[in-house]
Design a protein around this nucleic acid. Structure first.
Lengths: 220, 220
DNA sequence: CTCCTTTTGTTGAAAATTCAACAGATTTAT
DNA sequence: ATAAATCTGTTGAATTTTCAACAAAAGGAG
């Protein structure tokens, strides 16, 4: 487990917990590590929602796929961040979404029950973990609000511009890279891919932006 | 404060806390009560996000309004439920949404800092409150997932049917009332109101459902 | 380096949404 | 009870999206 310490120290779940305690805690929590190749399923929709996942390397996508096969990407989770924690904490039976490896990745899995309930030895860190989960869930809620603000727009152009403006703001620059390819961006914005490509071309012709692959530059 | 006890006992924030302790706690937390008439603003977008709100009577709406005045309804919060807790817990400066009284209502406001930080007397209930907040935020996350699953659909008909199917499931019956009028439902589904009305009429003609005001019956 | 696969951009037609305007129904206020 | 205000359903035109098909570009495997 020691090899993952450097990453785990940056995981919001372990805020305020020193490295030594962390190591001990991992054993106590029954943490284990799993690896997935690109496109492999980490958690399938409908599977038991027992585990909190932590991305150790690579990244995963949280996706919903409806009856007709339409995909919607809820978020992309990178190193040191958690996924599925809301479902595990809410103690619902089954996963309402699918988690897919976005690239080859390693994830740590922790049975959430061990965090919420069975802490026989009343370690002080137990409370800290719950506090950290609360903080993390509050932050995740903000991300959902952002996504909803974007996808609530009615046209592809408005959605795209709202998304790009937010990315620019977060990057602190008019030039930035986005973490999605075209199909993924379309699935995040809930629009048609070809229509999205067309809109990007149009914005480029209009001089609103320039783009090369995943790098965009907002002009004006 | 005693008059609100019966409601507050059902608030997720106070799960596992007996009435007597609750009363004492409210004083310690500096809880106060405010009343709002229909359509009045409880929290404006951009205002400080310090307070957790609890609906004591009536209900409030959480809404986003964009640059052009387009409204998107994120959720409706009824008696005993919390609002703005994610923003207060995340300790961001400003509210990213607006909270509006949906009808005449009373709300309890609690400075979240008093829950997260300044508990000098190390009461055991402090930990319980944080645990309860964590649970509540996990549950709210599920609601966002539901909403996203609905609004990710591409047509008004698909959004509407997904929404109604969910309402029927929650009501445990094919006959149920929804908490929105037409304009509100359109703003929740992120579609045009007149188009929504037209779609409902069409579904009725096709024998998929019957409806009268806010009561719908799914047939077949 | 070449072949094969995946991704991206384009296009036109069909389908759906938005928008604006209006009339009838319902609700609220006085 | 009556008038005013709000809500709902309808319609047609303009706009936009989706869909399907294809070609060019980029990326990966051997």
């Amino acid at each position: 487990m020691k090899k993952y310490l450097e990453i785990l120290r940056h995981c919001p779940l372990f805020d305020g917990i020193d490295s030594e305690s962390l190591i001990r805690m991992l054993g106590c929590l029954g943490a284990r590590v799993a690896s997935f190749d690109k496109k492999y399923t980490v958690f399938a929709e409908g599977s038991p929602a027992k585990y909190i996942g932590i991305v150790l390397s690579g990244s995963v996508q949280i996706v919903q796929v409806d009856y007709y096969g339409n995909r919607s990407i809820l978020s992309k989770i990178g190193a040191a961040h958690m996924f599925a924690e809301a479902f595990a904490c809410a103690e619902i039976g089954a996963m309402p979404v699918t988690v897919i490896a976005n690239e080859p990745c390693e994830v740590m899995l922790i049975d959430c029950g061990h965090i919420l309930h069975t802490c026989t030895n009343n370690c002080g860190f137990h409370q800290q973990l719950i506090y950290n989960l609360m903080k993390d869930l509050a932050t995740k809620t903000l991300l959902f609000h952002q996504r909803i603000e974007i996808t609530a727009k009615r046209t592809t152009r408005e959605k795209l511009m709202a998304y790009l403006a937010l990315q620019a703001k977060e990057a602190g620059s008019n030039s930035f890279e986005i973490p999605f390819d075209r199909q993924e961006l379309a699935d995040y914005l809930d629009v048609d891919r070809s229509g999205l490509s067309a809109e990007i071309s149009k914005l480029r012709r209009e001089g609103v932006l320039t783009s090369a692959k995943n790098r965009f530059v907002l002009l004006k």
